[in-house]
Design a protein around this nucleic acid. Structure first.
Lengths: 234, 234
DNA sequence: GTAAAAGACTGATAAATATCGATTTGTATT
DNA sequence: AATACAAATCGATATTTATCAGTCTTTTAC
């Protein structure tokens, strides 16, 4: 199970400063304050990091590994909103609302997570305008991302949605055309809003048509332009 | 066409203070500054207030009327994100991002819109932490709303989506069980992510089953509990 | 007041997608 | 290596949803 520890790549918020653009607006004393209100936990693949509905007391930053952020919808179905990578601040949604988690987060592989106390974070927002502005910027970007996702989910057919999913994974998550997928087929389905069987079918189709090469979880995008075309035509 | 004017119910930001919770955190001089950087425009039903893709120079507050906020998706299809009511601040998404409108807004009836210069607004955020926090609160609430919408659009069938749409209109927009709908059937379809014909069919079904009474655009919700049940079961 | 246009509606059909059952493959454990 | 178990796969079928064509109704324009 998850246990406390100090990882090698996250000893101090003063270092994280370099990796997380938002934190670079904070002063040294502010970073020290933040550092005193944080701790780390390791998670194994599959373990739940945040559970939807529980009370939100901390923000989350992964320092190693990947995780999926999803909402629990109707009949136990999951909708994966996005994949969390290291050095991304997660959990803002609850900061100024009802202090509840409105989504769950589960580790996709072995991860290390840094938890920052919510009030320490709020304090920084109140004290540092630049930081607050960075925070707002972050929120609004996510809002725009949400719009695109809604269009994809509600107006595109399966081919377009799978194309969108692959473009997202390749462009935003792995930043490569050739990568080892951490998502199961079910996860791909939950990311693109369809049944597992349908996701498998479309992926196989793309494979057969030479758009991608998919062997187990080894994924290579062969024709990115074609994916973009499919994404646009829906 | 739209023309400049001073409406009776929005003479001065100092008064709006009372109606818009977020503005109540501003000081008198801050409100005066805001007031100097705003103007009003009247729109007729159907006119476009913001157009997706154009540059965002102002925030919007309706003082009378209703409008639909929608993104232009694939093949000219619209996805209505939400309905805009008076005294709601709109346009935050672009504030700190790329200064582009990422959605369009069109008047549903004759409306009066107050435009506030973006930089005046930013200035207030920088100068007033409470105001910034209110702003963040606003953004995060919208984020949570987005999640619910995504679940509805991607995981529920047509009956569930129409139920969600009706619950939204009744609970959040009109705040009544009995109201004159400003949306066309096509708009209802665009709000719930389905074809116009399907929307008409489900509405008629609900009417026949005694869940609603629908005559033209006069809508009365007869069995709210049943709508909630349909929403939950998808 | 009448013609024209737009919106609302309906049944039949076609297309998209989910579900089911059965099989195969891969992975972890002993 | 053998077993157990989860994940992936695939064809057949059922369900959901969109599309289309045509009619009816309401509103708009002159």
């Amino acid at each position: 199970m998850a246990k406390f520890s100090k990882s090698d790549n996250c000893k101090n918020c003063l270092d994280c400063n370099m990796r997380i653009p938002m934190l670079s607006t904070l002063s040294r004393p502010e970073l020290i304050e933040l550092n005193e209100n944080r701790f780390e936990v390791k998670f194994k693949a599959g373990e739940t990091i945040f559970k939807q509905g529980t009370s939100a007391t901390h923000l989350l930053i992964l320092t190693t590994g990947l995780a999926k952020l999803y909402v629990e919808g109707v009949q136990d179905k999951q909708l994966i909103i996005r994949i969390i990578k290291p050095w991304e601040i997660v959990g803002q949604a609850s900061l100024y609302f009802d202090n509840r988690h409105h989504y769950s987060i589960a580790a996709l592989n072995n991860t290390t997570a840094c938890f920052i106390e919510i009030n320490a974070f709020k304090k920084a927002i109140q004290a540092n305008t630049l930081f607050a502005e960075e925070f707002i910027k972050n929120c609004t970007q996510k809002g725009i991302f949400s719009f695109e996702k809604m269009v994809s989910l509600s107006q595109k057919q399966m081919h377009g949605r799978i194309a969108d999913g692959l473009i997202y994974l390749s462009g935003k998550v792995y930043e490569a055309l050739n990568f080892d997928l951490h998502l199961s087929r079910q996860d791909v389905a939950d990311l693109t809003g369809m049944s597992k069987d349908s996701a498998i079918r479309i992926l196989k189709e793309f494979h057969n048509e030479g758009i991608i090469e998919l062997d187990g979880r080894k994924l290579k995008i062969l024709n990115y332009a074609q994916l973009e075309r499919i994404s646009e035509t829906g």
